[in-house]
Nucleic acid binder design. Structure first.
Lengths: 335, 335
DNA sequence: TAAATAACTGCAATCGATTACAGTCTGTTT
DNA sequence: AAACAGACTGTAATCGATTGCAGTTATTTA
């Protein structure tokens, strides 16, 4: 790897001029510039990004913390992040945390050690260790989907989960459903509270009883969907409709329901959340809530960059639009 | 952010000693060490990774080029990569290339500009621009799944696609199938040739005719699976079994087949490739070839690290084991 | 024509670490 | 008691850029 000095030699100029032709070309004379470009070409010179980072204090990369890389919904968000980052000259450092605090700390620490300029968190945990909490105060950070629990209010890109679940619940009650089951993801999150709240508000309005024993599940996975469905089917009263807090859960649930010889939606309606791509290809195709994941990723990048560039944020909370996608996994309650 | 100098002040030592307590603790006296650790704590000091990278010439990160982030199979590989990288003190720079050369060039260039120490490519294209080809000669690089087409032989982690497809083909012929269709991913890749070769070799042995017009599709996606199935069903002779070159394609194909009022596997058997997680939850669950994606990712990291550390490679080609997963999407041919 | 301005370019300090080399101090060996 | 080894620690050069400041021309203005 050749350095800036070799280019200097070849072009007969100082490092300053070479550096300038690369960063502020219009500061240097056209003829010199050309000579330098030729020298760069000949030397096969590539500026050492690390060196320039030391000087400028910017790494031009963002860390993204993902609780679970196998979730296609997160992936879509990451695609959005990656694209937007790239367009802005940033690169993405990926951290699969598996929800483990020590891995979060490790990746979050990258911002403190100048490896990254900002942090996008796809979870609600405060990703820094207690030790680093003070330093973390001024790091550019956004969360997607759910607000980070911490004293400081970090910006968030999120969906109106309450309203989305109301829409979904209304969709089901309009089909005459009265006995509901819920298979949730994480029980102690704001998302959980918002979604449950949304559903309950509709049931309340409709005068439908709902017992918290009908809420099962605590993981966003196929397995948890299967297990949740199994639990619900084993209860005294079988629900006629099941809310699943993401599509993976719904897929697992439908699988299990069919195993029991029941039909979806004839015997039980199932609805998911996220609208991942495969949902449209399931049998039956899933009724679900579309979250604009790609867009959310893009927005997240905008917001961190704004912080990095020390521009004031217009708002601390960006609400993106959901759409209810009605497909064949939900239908009229059987009489 | 405080620097090493502030720690020096607090502890009353030189930068050298601070640096040493962090990198070679046993070189410094226990009491000094403790004083320094206390100072580090008090200052909230985090070493600037960029600065140390300049000096050492190592960035401790790897670029991973993914042709398509939405493919769950690639994701699983990335999970393996990420984990292994982290265990070795490396972080992962993710590049979603969408198969576009200019994006490949851009990401691959990161190794040349010292942003990354090595490169893992989940595709077969030579990721550097022609300009950079010379410089690329000595960059640590591995590909996963498929060998990189280039003069230099870069190591590869791959499956024996030929044998895997033979296994799959035998599975189907043993069920009595004689009319086959194939929905492929990329037509000009080695994978394509190996897989097609494997299938044809079995058909040959069994004396089964096969017409290349029964090979359709050129993209690893649900849509392509649907479209491919549609095309095959519109042909003069309807196949009784369809090979799909990944599970996404198979999922799309099954969806389409059902739309035509046909049953899987009663009317048509469908087999996939990769064994992504959702395959087990499809209706019917997919017969497929399991690729140990996570393991492949880990191996890829091992191999690049070996190159980075300038240790000789034991072999240039690492073959991982496949397993045929027989599930309900394939069955006896209907009479 | 002298003075002022503009357009380039170079010098050298700097970013925040790492590390070869040399120096100091303590303890051993003869 | 002198010589030497071992254990620490510090000095200062260095990695490869960036950039404020100053210097040199060339051009414009008065």
């Amino acid at each position: 790897m050749s350095t800036i000095k070799e280019v200097c030699q070849l072009a007969g100029v100082s490092t300053a001029t070479v550096s300038r032709t690369l960063k502020n070309p219009n500061m240097v004379n056209v003829k010199t510039r050309e000579r330098i470009f030729a020298a760069i070409e000949k030397a096969g010179y590539r500026p050492n990004v690390m060196a320039s980072s030391v000087k400028t204090g910017k790494s031009n990369s963002l860390v993204v913390l993902v609780p679970n890389l196998s979730n296609p919904f997160f992936l879509r968000i990451i695609q959005g992040i990656e694209k937007a980052a790239q367009e802005n000259g940033y690169s993405v450092l990926l951290g699969d945390t598996q929800g483990e605090p020590h891995r979060e700390h490790e990746y979050a620490g990258m911002v403190l050690s100048n490896r990254a300029d900002g942090l996008i968190h796809l979870d609600h945990s405060f990703p820094f260790s207690d030790n680093d909490a003070l330093l973390a105060e001024k790091v550019p950070m956004v969360s997607v989907c759910e607000r980070i629990v911490s004293d400081k209010q970090y910006p968030v890109i999120e969906l109106d989960n309450y309203s989305a679940c109301r829409a979904l619940a209304k969709h089901l009650t309009s089909y005459g459903h009265k006995r509901f089951g819920i298979i949730a993801g994480q029980n102690e999150s704001q998302i959980f509270r918002d979604r449950l709240g949304g559903i309950k508000s509709v049931l309340n309005e409709e005068g439908i009883d709902f017992d918290d024993s009908m809420v099962v599940g605590n993981e966003y996975s196929y397995e948890s969907g299967s297990a949740g469905a199994k639990a619900l089917l084993a209860g005294k009263v079988r629900p006629t409709a099941i809310f699943c807090f993401n599509d993976d859960i719904a897929i697992g649930a439908i699988h299990e329901i069919k195993k029991h010889g029941l039909k979806v939606p004839d015997d039980i309606s199932v609805v998911g959340f996220d609208n991942i791509k495969v949902s449209a290809y399931m049998d039956p195709p899933l009724t679900t809530i579309d979250q604009p994941a790609y867009e959310m990723g893009r927005k997240a990048v905008e917001v961190v960059l704004q912080q990095i560039r020390k521009k004031p944020l217009t708002r601390n909370r960006e609400i993106v639009q959901f759409r209810i996608i009605e497909r064949a996994s939900s239908g009229a309650v059987s009489s």
